[in-house]
């Protein structure tokens, strides 16, 4: 299959995903009548669908580790963040059980989701069994929400203070980068299933290896680098937002007219 054919035909219209998205939208519209931030929600939904329906999903499903990593990052860091931003600003999260409201829980959720699912056995299992894959997707969304809840809970007082948030994000960034570094430089054993396809369902193997020049080593390297560099930029972006939030409360810089 050539690249063009692939881009047009490799969309996976998985009914479960579509139904889940539909239900999500309905719940959102039903639950929040006032103060809707529907834009954020639709954006979250769009990103979610794009990750799970577009050719990226087909690639992640047994072909490319790097595509899997992209999916992983989006589901853990982008979709939950957008979802939290779509909540009405007055919504309190005080109903959270105390354990979930602790920063340490959020941190372990965010970092743990990265390390846990890249344990070689689990990484391979998620490609082999649909059920593990579904579990992985759901867990990433839930854990990502726990992680971001500390930073972008709708109410300011339920978030970490800006300096605390910087520490939280930075340490998470380091913890994930370390894994990225390991993946980048270790031999191709982390998710060995991607080195040889179980079945070349789409007939894409040839195109990927020779057309796109994606060797197994390069594939894992890109996966590791995605986790190392661009993922850090997501955290870094959040850190800047925190600094802006901190300084933002100062009176706006305006000229003081000279009185002479």
């Amino acid at each position: 299959m050539s690249t063009e054919q692939f881009l047009f035909s490799a969309w996976t219209w998985n009914p479960v995903v579509l139904i889940a998205a539909g239900i999500g939208l309905a719940v959102y519209l039903f639950a929040f009548r006032a103060e809707r931030r529907i834009g954020w929600f639709l954006l979250a939904l769009a990103v979610f669908l794009l990750t799970l329906v577009s050719p990226i999903n087909s690639l992640a499903d047994g072909y490319l580790f790097s595509a899997h990593m992209l999916q992983h990052i989006v589901l853990l860091l982008i979709v939950p963040g957008l979802l939290l931003l779509s909540l009405p600003r007055s919504l309190s999260l005080s109903w959270r059980p105390r354990i979930l409201a602790r920063p340490l829980t959020g941190w372990i959720a965010g970092v743990g989701a990265m390390w846990f699912w890249h344990w070689p056995t689990l990484c391979n299992a998620a490609v082999t069994w649909r059920s593990v894959y579904a579990l992985q997707t759901i867990s990433l969304l839930v854990l990502g929400t726990l992680f971001w809840g500390q930073i972008i809970a709708p109410r300011d007082e339920e978030r970490l203070s800006p300096p605390g948030a910087v520490l939280y994000l930075f340490s998470a960034c380091v913890a994930c980068s370390s894994l990225g570094i390991i993946l980048t430089f270790s031999p191709v054993t982390v998710c060995s299933i991607y080195t040889m396809p179980v079945s070349d369902r789409l007939g894409m193997w040839e195109t990927i290896r020779t057309g796109w020049r994606f060797t197994a080593e390069k594939d894992q390297q890109i996966g590791g680098l995605l986790m190392w560099v661009p993922m850090c930029f997501i955290y870094l972006g959040a850190i800047f937002a925190q600094i802006a939030r901190w300084f933002g409360e100062a009176p706006a810089a305006r000229p003081v007219t000279q009185q002479t």
């Binding site: 560099v229 870094l236 850190i239 800047f240 600094i243 300084f247």
Partner: peptide, 19 residues
Amino acid sequence: FGYEFVAGSTVAIAFLSLG
């Protein structure tokens, strides 16, 4: 000029320099 931006860009440089 722009205290917040000078202060904030320092943090940005510090973080970026580690990676």
